[in-house]
Amino acid sequence: MFDSYRVNTLQYDPDRCINCGMCSRVCPHGVFMPGRETAELAAPALCMECGACALNCPVQAITVQSGVGCAWAMISAALRGKDMDSGECSCGGEPGSCCGSVQEKPE
């Protein structure tokens, strides 16, 4: 209950893994840990879908629909009739944090 984050889009195919260790190096939440023969998916529920592991995996053993988990950006997109997941309304405009008013761009 009250946990919307238990499920995410991270998928890992250990059969393809060559154990280069890159995923556990780039993951900021310890989702992947170094294993003996392949990388270990240690904490999938902690994944924030940043996409670093998938982008840096040299053998495409990892897929994830990456994006920024920012309600402001997604609601802004929805209110403008855009796809919430497109990333068109980014958390833009705020260097210190990802929040803040979305910059209006002339269409």
């Binding site: 919307s4 984050y5 499920v7 994944c47 924030m48 988990g69 920012c70 309600a71 402001w72 997941d85």
Partner: peptide, 17 residues
């Protein structure tokens, strides 16, 4: 504040919305 936090996935935020 999800956008400022360091833990929220887009799937989870969509669920929350």
């Amino acid at each position: 504040f999800t956008g400022c936090s360091t833990t929220t996935s887009r799937t989870g935020v969509r669920n929350e919305i």
